[in-house]
Simulated assay, not measured.
Amino acid sequence: MNTVNKPLNILFIGESWHIHMIHSKGYDSFTSSKYEEGATYLLKCLREAEVSVNYMPAHQVQISFPQDQADLDKYDVIVISDIGSNTFLLQNDTFYQSKIKPDALEMIKKYVSNGGGLLMIGGYLSFMGIEAKANYKNTILADVLPVIMLDGDDRIEKPAGVYACPVEKEHETVNHFTDWPIFLGYNQVKPKDNTTVALTINDDPLLVYGNFEKGKTACFMSDCSPHWGSHEFMNWKYYTSMWVNILRYISKE
């Protein structure tokens, strides 16, 4: 693990959404909308642990994802959480105005190749996701991530709950953690050869580490927050320590 006590500088992408609701009350109905962010608690925990976080909500990717490779290379780790590949590939200038722009996923791949760390966290629009709409298996990040994704919808819903479990020889990033929490679902994958599975869930990988050229990668197959990330997980005494350990382990040397 990269144990140098320098402050980590990360780019956290995703974990935001808009909700448009229809309220029907007898004959009459009306609509309302709201905006939500799912990683607020995690980002608060990271900042309190002296991790410098630049947060880019999903809708900002469409208009303000870096265009210069140097703007990505300044980060120790890039985190992608619950945001589908289309948002990276179909930015507003390209989709609406047919402008040629740098491929954001190609830039992330190059960032890792040059020694950067990449973490993908699970969710309905991570890996393949609901109805396979996240669709990362059919992008160049499939080469970078340490897991083999399924062909279709990869969600495993566990409303009765399923517990995280460390492998027999505990990985250094989760060593000595106890009272492993319950989760309500996850994305199902298989680990690639020459990768390390640090945690399992329901006999599937939960936390996987790998390498891509000069960089390090990690996949956490469940959510960092509800609904898959249970309230028990959010209140787990090792919640912050686990995320900081993961980020430091894959960060630039």
Rank of each mutant, 00 (worst) to 15 (best):
M1F: 11
V4S: 09
N5Y: 06
N5G: 12
P7W: 06
L11M: 07
E15Y: 10
W17V: 14
H20D: 15
S24C: 10
K25R: 11
K25M: 14
A39F: 08
T40C: 10
K44I: 07
K44Q: 14
A49L: 09
E50K: 15
V53A: 07
M56W: 05
P57S: 11
A58G: 15
Q62H: 11
Q69N: 15
L72D: 04
I78M: 01
S85C: 05
T87F: 04
F88Q: 02
L89R: 13
L89W: 04
L90F: 09
Q91T: 10
N92I: 12
D93S: 12
K101G: 06
P102Y: 04
K110P: 02
K110I: 13
Y111V: 04
Y111S: 00
V112M: 00
V112I: 13
N114W: 01
G115C: 05
G122P: 07
I130F: 14
Y136I: 02
K137N: 08
T139C: 02
D143V: 08
P146H: 02
V147E: 07
I148F: 01
M149A: 06
D151F: 10
D153N: 15
D153M: 03
D154V: 05
P159C: 02
P159M: 02
A160H: 11
A160L: 07
V162E: 14
C165L: 14
C165E: 15
V167Y: 03
V167F: 00
H171P: 03
D179I: 03
W180A: 01
W180Y: 13
W180P: 01
V189K: 01
D193H: 10
T195E: 05
A198K: 02
P205E: 07
Y209A: 04
N211L: 06
K214R: 13
K216L: 12
K216G: 06
M221Y: 04
S222L: 06
D223Q: 14
S225V: 04
W228E: 04
G229C: 07
S230W: 01
F233T: 10
T240G: 03
S241P: 10
N245K: 06
Y249P: 01
K252V: 03
E253N: 13
E253W: 07
